[in-house]
Amino acid sequence: MIAAISAFAATATAITTSATGTAGTLTSLTVGEIELFGLSNFTIGLVGAIICIFISFYALMREKDDLHRLLLTDLIEVIALIAIALLGTDLAEALILPGLVVGVAELTAMSQIYIVKEKLVREPESYLDIEVMHTAPAIIAVGMLIYGIILSGFTGGAVAGLGMLFYFACKGTEEKTEILEKVSGYAWVMWVVAFIVFMTLPAYWFFALMLAGTGILAKVAIKISILGTMRKNDGSGGRRSMGGNGNV
């Protein structure tokens, strides 16, 4: 219940912020200049964020269940992003991305720890099994992959990755994960190389840009598609033991 209230509050602030940020047809964004009751819109947004902090941390203080606390942490990270967004500059936009990724990364690792800790190894009784998962994965995946490559960069990677995630989740794979990880590692290296080129040989910025754009596309796409391979459905409807002795 508390979680629901705080989630609502967080969303409300997000909406308020974006509303104040883009009100009217502005030629330049005026964070800190629009005034309401004698307060700048930045201050109002900040007060909103702090109220969200109160609610969500109070919820965390009261909550005892591990899983619910894990979910609450995600909520808390959203508030952090809101606070960065209050800046309303291009820089804020660039800072949100790392903030978001850190949250996602930690959530991934923590969920896995939770599974191991609670020994949640029992297979689900039944998987989602709808027709589109048998007939369309290839087409949808290829479509999203192409669109992702066209978009390129981070979002492109996300789109392409979602396509691949869907494919792997439907078709099921076992061994491809390691190859994917390897490719992802190389993509990361490409990114780092591009950064070094930017810093040491700025004249070759275009080459570095292409390198970075490709690297980040591949990396993000693959990271997302790995999530698809982490589901234990082998696609044929058969069930495979998840190891251990299957106890709960």
């Binding site: 941390f57 508030i79 952090a80 960065i84 949250g103 930690e106 923590m110």
Partner: peptide, 22 residues
């Protein structure tokens, strides 16, 4: 796990702190 939860919620004060500095 407890440690990890703390590390996760710790990102809020960290990032909000940096955002406020900016």
């Amino acid at each position: 796990f407890e440690y990890g939860l703390l590390a996760m919620i710790g990102t809020l004060p960290l990032f909000v702190g940096a955002a406020l500095v900016l």
